[in-house]
Design a protein around this nucleic acid. Sequence first.
DNA 1: TCAGAATATGCAACTGAGTTGCATATTTTT
DNA 2: AAAAATATGCAACTCAGTTGCATATTCTGA
Lengths: 139, 139
Amino acid sequence: MSERLDEQARHMLRETKLYCTEARVAILRVLLEANGPLRQDQIAGWESHKLNKVTVYRTLDSLAEAGLVHRAFLQNRAWHFELADHCSEKQCHPHFTCTNCGVTRCMTDISLPLAKIPQKGYVISRQQVRLEGLCPACA
Amino acid sequence: MSERLDEQARHMLRETKLYCTEARVAILRVLLEANGPLRQDQIAGWESHKLNKVTVYRTLDSLAEAGLVHRAFLQNRAWHFELADHCSEKQCHPHFTCTNCGVTRCMTDISLPLAKIPQKGYVISRQQVRLEGLCPACA
DNA sequence: TCAGAATATGCAACTGAGTTGCATATTTTT
DNA sequence: AAAAATATGCAACTCAGTTGCATATTCTGA
């Protein structure tokens, strides 16, 4: 229920010491409702919210900086954003994109081992995996 | 030596039944020389080639369609292109990007196991891995 | 609880990667 | 060498994402 999600969003914002503004609550709610990566325009237009584009980008920036949100792999020149849960500190879940219908889905139930770089001196802080292929509907 | 690379480029084009044009040879040569993913502007400006932007994009499109070149993960909204060697059919080598200096490097010597999707019906045709962190110079 | 400080928002105008239409040039085929 | 097939270049466009700046909102401390 929406009251519930609002409260959850507000809680997340307070936890991370971010100003608890209407836009941030709204955007977090959208991301809580949607369980998958969304583009800016999808977030802005969610249920006739009609949020301002600049606000959406700036809000997502601050949410990402606070670690509440992750930027997912680009597809067609547009960033995708999603909640940062289901992610370990070093690795986000893989994303699967269907090359036919274009749908992107979070594969929260798979994880690959972290890569090891044989050369000395590298520090890996994050690993992202993208899968491409056909979804069940298109295969 | 450059004659050599030109010949190699021409050979690759003939093999894939692509018209053997000046631009294609030049661009393949750049990619053969550089061993890492390059952006369009880097390719266009390589050694004062001054190739036309549209031509570069279209050439890379055809090279990618022919399987000679791969599009690598986006970084800062710009595609990166590189030769498709060192790649198995299903998996390209991982890319490492330094979050401090921004350098991207191909990790041709690592490879992760292919993900397995437990849900029925998915066909994975390609897996890409991106690593972020600090390079030896910045660590 | 309210003023002032801190921060977020919205608008309009911009940036820059990538694309498209179309006329022309180049490559291949016959 | 001519015709058919394809590639190139230009200019003008699209569209995601950004920036400056004036205004509004949220928080904090007396």
